[in-house]
Amino acid sequence: MCIFIVISLPLARLNMNGFMYKSWWKILGSVIVIYTTVAGLLLGVPHLPILNETIRNLYFHVPMWFAMLTLFSISVFYSIKHLLTGDQADDLRAVESVNVGVVFSLLGLVTGSLWAKYTWGQYWSFDVKQNFTAVAILLYFAYLILRNAIDEEQKRAKISAIYNIFAFPMMIVLILVLPRLSDSLHPGNGGNPGFNKYDLDERMRMVLYPAFIGWSIIGYWIYTIRFRIRSIENQQNS
């Protein structure tokens, strides 16, 4: 849990010094993502019933959620910063990182339900994990719609920043806390052991953790592109 905060916050801060224009971290992210894809498909995995080869989905499905968490953390960081400084650019950063985070969350949801079809038997079995993640995504859709409903720029920035600060802990509770408290099919929830209990061995760690970092970097990169486009648009409109 703490890892994504540790990764996301320095990334958010580095932004100031033209970090988003550098290309070394983009190359690093690309290399990591390609490595995890190749290693994720070829490296040995534990032989487990029901899961069979689908255990490799762990390298692709879970990093989507991790990238989403990173982007939403960046967003809430800038929402707080906006309330402290009143800088309009921070509001733009907050909304653009949510825009990218929502895409990653939808990818996570779709890959999750596809995986569920072949292991749990149904695309959507109304499992707590599935339901609550869907609700968490709706929370962020509401954030994006709320923004469009307000015309005045400063008011919009302030109200949506406050909404975002409340939505973030709600999302964490919905995705990571509540599913653990009740019965769930999803690993790691409801007395159902997580992959890391005995299935996630050293070989898998060597792929999964880099995948978290790599996909977070790619998500951050797409967010910087969106933010830069948005700032140029704003410049031309004003």
Binding site: K26, S30, I225, R228, I232
Partner: peptide
């Protein structure tokens, strides 16, 4: 299969790089 996926991924990442370059040019202009 692995090669196919890597080609797709590398292609998309390359596309992202080229978008980034184009954006840099526009930023310089503006």
């Amino acid at each position: 299969v692995v090669l196919c996926i890597v080609i797709i991924l590398a292609g998309l990442l390359f596309y992202l790089f080229s978008l980034d370059r184009r954006l840099k040019k526009i930023e310089k202009k503006s």
